[in-house]
Design a protein around this nucleic acid. Sequence first.
DNA 1: AGCTCATGGCGAG
DNA 2: TCGCCCTGAGCTG
Length: 269
Amino acid sequence: MPEGHIIHRLAGTYTERFAGRKARVTSPQGRFAESAKLLDRREMQDAEAYGKHLFLGFGPRGWVRVHLGLYGKVAFTPGRGGEAVGQVRLRVANVDWFADLRGPAACELIGEGERAAVLDRLGPDPLRADADPERAWRRISKSRTSIAALLMNQEVVAGAGNIYRAEVLFRHGIDPYREGRAVTRAEWDAIWADLVALMRLGVEAKRIDTVREEHSPEAMERAPRVDDHGGEVYVYRRASMPCHVCGTPVSQAVMAGRNLFWCSVCQAD
DNA sequence: AGCTCATGGCGAG
DNA sequence: TCGCCCTGAGCTG
């Protein structure tokens, strides 16, 4: 379930359980074996998230950059860990815990320069205190690309994915097909502030909840949760189901190869 | 057993 | 814009 909130939570958990100690680093599946060997029995100094990228810091040995992609998962388990189950690309372990990474899109050992290059390409991350939403605004306010596509572009905003983009556009009544340059400054400020708030909640709750309290009882009653993506939402994966606010069936379309969900009434320009 | 789908992103064309 | 890669869950038959 990897949007940015999950990655930030993972960084916190890696830090809490492994940072400041020597770790066993292995690749039971083998695809990270050579790099793992270079890190094994070294100290993991810290773990940090930027957007959907997770960096495990091994000081002079460099960084492990992990990107979960669509399928990647990390499982933390107490104990020393026996035989790996399934395709475990990376196992980090100490006497108390082991963390198994499966199915990542990327898991690579990189140096400071490569890390800087990755960060350079990323837009501001709503979950980071050092984020500068002005950078995103400069990009959005000049763009003819739809606001929905812009919010998914990690060079514009880092960390939001398909769920947050659908939900934040709903919450601000913005047609997903509207061009970036037609978004007002006030709307952008509200979108950013909302992303910050929603994603922080997501880190805490480990799921994505976006339905405001005044719509919530109604929403729960009408739409018992069927999906495994987490919490209670307005439009994401609710195609044809009644909008929690106006009752209109939720719309679905494919935009740039990704499913897009919105309410054509609440989000009409 | 085999298909389909997924919260992502890359490179080719 | 398309196809492809990472993997597992939840169907179908």
